[in-house]
Simulated scan of single mutants.
Amino acid sequence: MEPRNFALVLGTALTTILVLADTLLNERKESQMTYAEKMPPTLRLSRQEAAHYLGVAPATLAVWSCTKRYDLPYVKVGRRVQYRLIDLDRFLESRTVRSETLQ
């Protein structure tokens, strides 16, 4: 094989390997993402949907927003109240209690 052809074949092979490696890395990153991270940041849920997602009653969310008990952002358009999925995940993360390890 001529050196010129060899360099062309080698260059094509390296490009293919780099593309495959990049694809595998992206797939791995996506598999480690939360559900909310995979969804568009503009995705909004109704109060009923948000309550179901959090595992509380819709009335509980209404009380929380009225009393400002928790810093849980919501979007209000007219009478409609909506919650962004990314805000719900941030809220859950802020409420997560991590146990300390004994040493």
Rank of each mutant, 00 (worst) to 15 (best):
M1F: 07
M1I: 05
M1Q: 08
E2V: 02
P3T: 10
P3G: 08
P3M: 11
P3L: 11
R4G: 00
R4T: 04
R4D: 13
N5Y: 03
N5T: 12
F6Q: 09
F6P: 00
V9M: 11
V9Y: 09
V9F: 08
L10P: 00
L10E: 11
L10A: 12
G11D: 09
T12A: 14
A13M: 07
L14H: 02
T15D: 11
T15K: 09
T15N: 09
T16W: 03
T16Q: 11
T16S: 13
T16C: 12
I17W: 06
I17E: 10
I17Y: 04
V19A: 12
V19W: 01
V19P: 02
V19Y: 02
L20M: 13
A21I: 10
D22F: 11
D22A: 15
D22K: 06
T23D: 04
T23G: 01
N26P: 00
N26K: 06
N26F: 02
E27V: 04
K29N: 08
S31W: 03
S31Y: 03
S31L: 09
S31R: 14
Q32H: 14
Q32S: 06
M33C: 10
M33S: 07
M33A: 13
M33R: 15
A36N: 02
E37K: 08
K38M: 13
K38L: 15
M39H: 05
M39I: 01
M39A: 14
M39Y: 00
P41F: 05
T42Y: 07
R44T: 15
R44D: 05
L45M: 13
L45V: 02
L45G: 01
L45P: 01
S46G: 04
R47C: 10
R47K: 06
Q48M: 08
E49G: 01
E49F: 00
A50N: 00
A51E: 01
H52N: 14
H52T: 15
L54I: 07
G55N: 08
A59P: 00
A59R: 14
T60G: 02
T60W: 03
T60C: 04
V63L: 10
S65Q: 13
C66P: 00
T67Y: 04
T67C: 04
T67Q: 15
K68M: 07
K68I: 02
Y70I: 07
D71S: 11
P73Q: 08
Y74F: 15
Y74S: 14
V75D: 14
V75R: 10
K76Q: 15
K76T: 02
V77H: 09
V77G: 05
G78A: 06
G78E: 08
G78R: 05
R79Y: 03
R79S: 14
R80Q: 13
Q82R: 10
Q82F: 07
Q82I: 00
Y83R: 07
Y83N: 04
R84Y: 05
I86G: 00
D87C: 06
L88N: 07
L88M: 03
L88C: 04
L88D: 06
L88R: 03
D89K: 02
D89Q: 11
R90Q: 15
F91V: 01
E93Q: 15
E93S: 11
R95W: 04
R95H: 08
R95Q: 15
V97C: 08
V97L: 15
R98D: 06
S99Q: 13
T101H: 05
L102V: 13
L102Y: 06
Q103K: 13
Q103G: 10
Q103W: 04
